[in-house]
C-alpha cells in the first residue's frame, strides 16, 4: 500500500510522468537499436551530407552514414554512460558517506578531507586530464565520470546519516546489539534512498552532458563509434550549422530531451518521496 500512494504522488507531477514515458520509449529504442536501426551506423550507405529522404529519414552525415541509425546507437551510448557512471559514483559515494557519517571520528575526518580534496579540483580539468592520461573510449569515460562525481553523493549521504543515526530506532537497534552492517544497511540506508535517488537523477543528466562535451572535444568516445557528442563534433563548422541542420539538430535535441526528462523525473521523485504530500 506504500507503493500505490507513491505512484499516485509521482503521477501527480505531469511533466515527470510524461518524462518517464518519454525516457522509457527512448530507452526501448536505444536498447533495440540493432533491430530498429535501418542501417549499420558505421557503414557508408549514401551520399555525403544528404538531406532527409524517405530512405534516410534524418539524412546522411558528411561521410555518407545514416543519421537516424547513428542517433539510435549514439543514444544507447549516452544512456549507458549516464546510468553506469551514476551507478559507479553513487556506489562509491554512498559507501564512503555511510562509513563517514556512521562511524564518525578519525575515519570521518579522513574520508571528508579526501572528499574535499577531490571536490576542490576544477571538475572539467579533472575529467580532461583523466581523459588525456587514459585511452579514450566508452569504458574509460564511464569510469572517469564515475570517479569524479562521487564526492557530492558522499556528502549528501553523510549528512543524512548524521541525522538518522540519532533516531531512536537506530539506538534501539544498538541497544539490541544488532551488527553494524544491519544498522547501516537495514536501518539507515533505506531511509536515505529518497535523497540518493533524487540526487542520482541529476548525476545521470550531468554524466550524459559530460559525455557529449568530452566527445565533442574529441576526448570521449572514439570515432567512428557513434555517440551524441561525436555526432555534434562532426557538425562544427558554421556552414553545416546553417545549411545542414539534420546533422546537429537530432543529436542536440536528443541530449536536450534526455537531460530534461531525467531532471523532471528527479522533480517528480522529490514530490513523491515527500511525506507531507499525501
Amino acid at each position: 500500500m506504500e507503493q500505490t500512494s507513491f505512484i499516485r504522488r509521482f503521477s501527480r507531477h505531469k511533466l515527470g510522468t510524461l518524462s518517464f514515458f518519454i525516457l522509457c520509449i527512448i530507452s526501448f529504442a536505444a536498447i533495440f537499436a540493432p533491430v530498429l536501426a535501418p542501417f549499420d551506423p558505421n557503414e557508408i550507405v549514401g551520399g555525403f551530407g544528404k538531406a532527409p529522404t524517405s530512405e534516410f529519414l534524418l539524412g546522411t552525415d558528411q561521410v555518407g552514414r545514416d543519421v537516424l541509425s547513428r542517433l539510435l546507437y549514439g543514444t544507447r551510448i549516452s544512456l549507458m554512460v549516464g546510468f553506469l557512471a551514476t551507478i559507479i559514483s553513487s556506489a562509491v559515494g554512498i559507501f564512503l558517506g555511510l562509513l563517514a557519517g556512521y562511524f564518525g571520528g578519525p575515519l570521518d575526518m579522513v574520508i571528508m578531507r579526501f572528499t574535499d580534496m577531490v571536490m576542490s579540483f576544477p571538475y572539467i580539468l579533472l575529467v580532461l586530464v583523466a581523459a588525456a592520461i587514459f585511452q579514450p573510449g566508452l569504458w574509460t569515460m564511464i569510469l572517469i565520470l564515475g570517479f569524479v562525481d562521487w564526492p557530492q553523493m558522499a556528502r549528501l549521504v553523510r549528512g543524512n546519516v548524521l541525522s538518522i543515526r540519532e533516531k531512536n530506532y537506530v539506538k534501539a537497534s544498538k541497544v539490541a546489539g544488532m551488527s553494524h552492517a544491519y544498522i547501516l544497511f537495514s536501518e539507515i540506508l533505506p531511509n536515505t534512498v529518497a535523497p540518493i535517488l533524487i540526487y542520482g537523477t541529476s548525476v545521470v543528466a550531468i554524466s550524459m552532458l559530460d559525455e557529449a562535451a568530452l566527445s565533442f572535444l574529441g576526448m570521449g568516445i572514439k570515432p567512428p563509434q557513434a555517440s551524441l557528442g561525436n555526432m555534434l563534433n562532426g557538425a562544427q563548422s558554421l556552414s553545416i550549422l546553417t545549411s545542414k541542420p539534420w546533422l546537429w539538430l537530432p543529436p542536440g535535441l536528443m541530449i536536450l530531451l534526455l537531460v530534461m526528462s531525467v531532471n523532471f523525473i528527479g522533480d517528480a521523485l522529490r514530490d513523491a518521496f515527500d511525506p507531507n504530500q499525501s
Binding site: K167, Y169, A172, A176, P190, N191
Partner: peptide, 26 residues
C-alpha cells in the same frame, strides 16, 4: 530500553513485524 519519543523509535521503512523479527532472529 523504551524511548520517550515513540515517533522516532520505529523505522518508518520497516513493517512492525520486521522490526520485531530481526533482533529475535539475530
Amino acid at each position: 530500553m523504551i524511548f520517550q519519543d515513540p515517533y522516532s523509535s520505529l523505522n518508518p521503512r520497516k513493517t512492525i513485524g520486521d522490526a520485531i523479527k530481526d533482533p529475535m532472529l539475530y
